[in-house]
Structures are given as C-alpha cells and as structure tokens.
Design a protein around this nucleic acid. Structure first.
Length: 445
RNA sequence: GGUGAGGUAGCGAAGCGGUCAAACGCAUCUGACUGUAAAUCAGACGGCUCCGGCCUUCGCAGGUUCAAAUCCUGCCCUCACCA
C-alpha cells in the first residue's frame, strides 16, 4: 500500500484548524505525544486534570514560555516550544510569552560547565527586539490570546526585603542538589550566587503571572521544579509543566555517549530562524535521514501514527527518503515564512536550479553587477565577492571561479585576473557552488 | 589582601631564542563524489605581490640580542586556591 505523501503535505500545510472543540483528553494526547521522549520522560504534571478543570469552568489555561535574550538570534531548536504553543493556542488557551531581559543578565546555569558571561542591559534590550521578530514568524504575537512580557518589569522593581521574603521559603539544599551545580562545585569551578538564584527568578515570573502550565526544553526540567516550589511557597497551586526534547543538530553527529548532538549555536550545526527560506530549505535537505524523522516529530504537527506510517513506507521502499525529506523541507520552510507556501516553492525551485534535476546554467538568483570602468578583473571579482585579493587568487587556483562559455563553465585562468574587467562584460561567473554573478557592461550614460 | 596558573590567528589548543605566518582539532572556503549544501576523500585557510619576495600578527608598552611568540622590566586583564 503506497503512502500518500501529497495528502500528508496538504494536511501539514493546510490552514491550521481550530482545536478548541477537542475534549480535554484529546488535547492532552496532542500535547503529550510531542512532549519529551527518551530516558527522562516527564509526565506532564497534573496537566490532564487542569485541562479538564479548564473545560468545566470555561476558563482557558495560562501557558508560560520564557526565553532569555542571551543572544541576538534563535535557532530551529528554540522554536520547538513555539510550534507546540501554536497548536495549544488553537485549543483556546492563553500564552504569557516572557522575554527574560532581567534573567538574561544573570544567565541560566542549566547544564553549563562554566559560568555564563553576564550580559549588560544594552545588549539584552537589543536582543529582545530581534527575538520578538523571530518568534512572530511562528506565533501571532498580536493575538489577544498572547501577552508579551519583559520580566524586568517586575523583577526590576523587587525590593531586597521582598526578595528575602520570597527566598526564605527555599532551601539551599534543593538548589544545590542539582547535578550540574554539584559537578561544578566538585570540579572547583565557579558557581556564583547569582547563577544559583537564577531558577528563583524564573519561579518569581511564574508566581507573578500565576502560571498554569509552563513549557520549555528538557534542559529546563530542574528549573521548572524550582518554579513549582516557589509557587507553593507563595501559597499558590504549583504550575504543571511540559518539557520538549531538544532538537538534534543538522550534522547528525554523536557525542561520546552515542547520543545525537543537540543543535547549538557554537556547534555550527544550527539553522537560524532568521535565515531566508532558501537556506532553510537547503539546510533541511542536508540533514541525515536519521535526524529527519526526529525533525518531523518536533517541528511539524504530524501525528505519531502518521509519522510511524511514513517511516515504515520509507523503510519498505515505497517512499524515497529524498521525497520525504523534501516534504519536510517544504513544511519547515513554510513554517518559518509565516505560512507563506510560495516561500517554500521558490526555495525549492532555487535549489533545483543549482543542484537538482532541473539544473540550469544561470539560476534565477544570479546577481547582476555593473562593471566599473578602468579596473582589472581581479578588482571586479573582489568587489563582487567581498573577498581579499589573496582569497580570490586561491579560489582561482582551486578552480573555484568559472566563467560560462557557451553551454559550459570553464575555470578562469589566474592570468586573466590582470586583464581589464571589460573582458567580463555580459558574462556569467560562478564562484564556488552557490554564487552566480552576471556582469553587465558599463551603462551608456 | 596572600599564593599560584594563564592571556597565541574565528574558536579550542601546541610552541617557550633562529628552520614560526606559527603544529594539531573545530568552524569556514574550494574541488571530486552523492538523492542531499550530509558523509567521505583531496586542497586552502593574515595581507599584498612584478610569484623572487615584501609587509603586519602571538594581552599592552618598553628593553636585551645579529635574531624574540619564545629572555628581562613595567602595566592591563582572566582564573583558581588560601584569607
């Protein structure tokens, strides 16, 4: 029995359905099947009960997602909670989206071996602005269901005596029993008091907002427990929480324990949310097949049953893995292009023109450049690529610069660099595999 | 405040008087290959070049030497331990 890829694509790309009619159990199942898997399975604490109460009382639940503005960009891994929240909002619930401008100045110590560098206010403010734009690609932040907060607006006003009152209820033991802290202390590494207090600040966010359910990555597990403790100490009902898995990186590389390495900014295995559709599309295609299935689960609204079928079909040979991956690439590209389907189409077209079946000598995204009079070929290439003269020479020596002659690209000779740039007039030049340049002769006026 | 360790190219990390524009790993770039911008293999990876070389780099500033990333002096910064 053949698997119907087209139908799956239609469902994943179709206008997102309203889910508010689902029963609490159905809502729970949808959330549960995307929540963390693997060794550290977290039963979303009391989530089902809350969903039932919500229905009975006709009161939407207040979900909370905190993002620290520690860097100017987020990657696809950070977007997993956003994708899930998009669905949760369609179930009729509410979201408090917190930009941790205050907490970013402390730095989340979770899983860190070294002290995190603290950021100053200016950096944090700049980052927060960029973040909003990126989150808005996935979530409609203007929706009445969503409230955006900056946690400095309450943490910044907290007086020392308030803080002492809050922290009195929290034992040092519960803070320090965490493995990541213990490891650092045992290793004689630095652990500042401010870092140790980080989860308390997070917890204070929950107390302030009276959060029902907090969502985040599995790395937040311990922090969430502290949040619960803080709410309890404040006489509130402790929040439920849902942890999602962390997204494996694009390379499919494994760590010493044989686990897939997580996407991280430093690991060069990440895809920025802010990248353009062509890059999203191509990067997804470059992911190993093994990682593809995980991305399907984490980044799309595919149901676990559908995913199992798709995977089985690929293993039987009914579906070519390439086709499955292209489908994923289209869905992911669309997701981060605010649902614009044309973005994925254009990205796919551009990709095929360079690498795929519909390979074309001059792709649509060839850049047109005007030649300046009286300069050499070398200077024209330097200006066009932004590389140094030495680098342009190296590219030539490695056959990295090719000129279209008739129906084929031929490598440029090094000697040609010193010729007048008029030689290039009307020619198409390929630099590396992806950069195409068309040189126009100087305008007549 | 005391003691100790250290600041090397985008990052990590060797080098500790000449053969150092500086090993190695990562990232990056190029070529080959591939369903793939993956993996793998090969090459490149400060700047400039009339391709013989020239110029600027090893925290900062001076000094010793024919010669310094390497030795000396001062300064700045980071980290750890003790207090």
């Amino acid at each position: 029995m053949a698997f119907d890829l087209a139908a799956l694509e239609e469902r994943l790309l179709a206008p997102l359905p309203d889910l508010s009619g689902l029963s609490p159990q159905e809502q729970f199942d949808l959330i549960r099947e995307k929540a963390g898997s693997g060794e550290s399975i977290v039963t979303p604490s009391g989530l089902l009960e809350r969903l039932k109460e919500s229905r009975a009382q006709g009161r939407p639940l207040r979900f909370k997602l905190g993002i620290d503005a520690t860097a100017a960009s987020i990657h696809l891994g950070h977007a997993i909670p956003l994708v899930n929240l998009r669905r949760i909002l369609r179930m009729g619930h509410r979201l408090d989206l917190i930009f941790g401008d205050f907490t970013a100045m402390v730095g989340d110590p979770s899983g860190r071996v070294e002290e995190r560098p603290a950021l100053d206010e200016a950096q944090v403010r700049a980052n927060a602005g960029v973040f909003t734009g990126q989150a808005a690609r996935v979530l409609d932040l203007a929706s009445p269901q969503v409230t955006v907060h900056y946690n400095s607006s309450w943490l910044g006003k907290l007086s020392l005596s308030d803080w002492l009152k809050v922290t009195r209820g929290i034992g040092m033991g519960s803070l320090l029993q965490r493995e990541d802290f213990r490891r650092r202390l045992d290793a004689g590494a630095a652990l500042s008091l401010a870092e140790a207090e980080y989860p308390l600040l997070m917890g204070y966010d929950s107390v302030t907002l009276r959060t029902d359910v907090e969502v985040g990555g599995i790395d937040q597990f311990l922090n969430f427990h502290i949040c619960r403790g803080m709410m309890e100490a404040a006489g509130q009902r402790p929040e439920s929480f849902v942890c999602f898995d962390l997204l494996p990186g694009t390379t499919g590389e494994r760590d010493a324990q044989g686990r897939l390495k997580k996407m991280s900014k430093t690991g060069a295995n990440h895809i920025p949310v802010a990248a353009d559709p062509a890059e999203h599309y191509a990067k997804v295609l470059s992911v190993p097949d093994e990682v593809m299935w995980i991305w399907y689960r984490e980044l799309t609204e595919i149901r676990s049953g559908e995913l199992a079928e798709l995977r089985a079909a690929a293993e039987r040979g009914d579906v070519h893995p390439k086709d499955a991956k292209r489908l994923l690439a289209r869905v992911v590209t669309t997701l981060f292009a605010r649902g614009e389907r044309s973005a994925a189409r254009d990205a796919e077209e551009a990709f095929d023109q360079k690498f795929g079946a519909r390979k074309v000598l001059v792709p649509d995204d060839t850049r047109s450049l005007r030649l300046e009079a009286g300069v050499k070929v070398l200077d024209a290439l330097r200006a066009a690529t932004g590389e140094s003269a030495s680098q342009v020479r190296r590219l030539i020596q490695q056959k990295g610069i090719q000129v279209l002659e008739g129906e084929a690209y031929v490598p440029m000779e090094e000697a040609a660099l010193l010729r007048p740039s008029e030689d290039l007039a009307g020619k198409v030049v390929k630099v590396g595999k992806r950069q195409y340049l068309r040189f126009e002769s100087k305008s007549i006026n």
